[in-house]
Simulated scan of single mutants.
Amino acid sequence: MSSNKAIVSSFVEGAPPGELADVIADIKALTSSTPNLINELGPAFEKYNEEQFTTVKLPGGSQPVIISSHNSLGDGRYYDTESASSFAFDHATQKASGVQSHVLEGAQTDLVNSTLKSLGSYVKEHFPNAVYGVYPIEDDSRLAVIIVANKYSPNNFWNGRWRSLYIFDPASGALEGSIKVDVHYYEDGNVRLLTNKSVNASVSSGTGAGIAKEISAAEKKYQEELNRSFTSLSEGAFKALRRQLPVTRQKVEWDKVASYRLGQDIGGGAARR
C-alpha cells in the first residue's frame, strides 16, 4: 500500500497546469478497489499547491490570491498581504473558506507595501492575467516575491503556467530567484515544456521600485531567450524532423500529381508491368 501511495502521490505532484482535477479523476478510476486512497494524499496535494503557486478566489473577493509555503500560517491557513486577510484552504478541492482579517505588522511592512505597488504596475503592463504577492519571511529579515500567470485552453488541448519566485535581502540588496515555465500540449500526443531559469541580481536602491525594476529586467531577458530558443527549434531541430525533398531530390509538381506513375516518376525506377 505504501508503494502505491508513493506512486499515486507522484502523479499528483506532476500534474500539468490546470489539470489536477483531471488527474484526481483518473486516480479514482484506476484505484477504484481502494477508494480511501484519495483521502491519504493530503501531503501530495499540499506540496503540489504550494510549489505550483495555486491561485484561489476568496469568498466575496474579486481578485485571486496565492497559495505557497511563504504565506502559510500553518494548519491549512494562508494569508494575503494586499487584502490584509487570512483564510483556510482545502488542498484537495482547491477551495478557500474562513476568511479573517490579517493586518501585516513588522519591520518590512513599508517595503512590502511599496513593492506590491511597483510590482502591480509591472505585472499589469506585461501579463494579460497574473497574480502576485510579497511576503516577509525568515523572521521578517527577507521578502519573498511571487508572480504566477496561468493560461488554460483545454478546448484546444493546451495549458500553461508562468511562475517566478524571488527572495530579497534588504541588508545586502541581493535578489535571488527562479523563473519557471510549464506548458502542456496534448492534442493527438503529449508534449510538455518545463524550464527553470535562475536569477541573481542586486537592488542598489533597496526600494520596492528597485525590486520591481530588477524583476522586470530579468524576466524581459528570459522572455527574449525563450523567443530565440523557439526560433532556433523551428528553424533547426523541428525542420530536421521533416524530409525536405523526396528520395529523387526533386520537388513534387503537385499540379501534375494525378498523371504520375508511382513507381517510375516518383520512385525513380522503371514501372512494373
Rank of each mutant, 00 (worst) to 15 (best):
N4G: 06
T31H: 10
L111K: 05
Y78A: 05
K5R: 11
Y185V: 15
A271K: 04
F127I: 10
H102Y: 05
I179Q: 04
K117A: 14
G208E: 03
D22S: 11
A21F: 03
F11H: 04
A270Q: 13
R242P: 00
K213A: 14
D140A: 01
A130K: 10
V199S: 09
K5A: 01
T55M: 09
K256T: 02
N156C: 05
N200F: 04
Q94F: 00
L262S: 00
W254K: 12
D188K: 15
K28P: 00
G206M: 11
P170M: 13
D182P: 05
D90E: 12
V8C: 04
T55I: 13
L175T: 13
T81D: 04
Q264L: 01
N155F: 15
A218N: 07
D265M: 00
G208L: 11
G177D: 12
Q100L: 04
E105F: 03
E225K: 09
S9L: 09
A96H: 01
Y122H: 03
L165V: 10
A240M: 07
V148P: 14
K151F: 14
S234Q: 15
S118D: 13
L116E: 11
D22C: 04
A271L: 11
Q244P: 00
A44K: 05
G133L: 03
Y78Q: 02
D265C: 00
D80G: 10
D26E: 08
I27A: 02
Y132I: 02
S85P: 05
K197P: 00
A258H: 09
L119C: 03
V134Y: 06
T195Q: 00
S153Q: 14
F53H: 10
L226K: 11
G133T: 01
A201H: 10
V145C: 07
K95F: 01
D26H: 07
S9H: 04
A6P: 06
A130S: 13
L241K: 00
T31C: 06
N39Y: 06
D26I: 01
G236A: 10
I38L: 11
T93D: 02
V131K: 06
T207L: 10
R77E: 06
A107M: 02
H102K: 10
I167W: 11
V12F: 07
I266C: 00
V252M: 11
E225H: 13
E82R: 11
H184I: 01
G61W: 06
K256Y: 06
I66Q: 05
D90R: 07
R142G: 14
N200V: 14
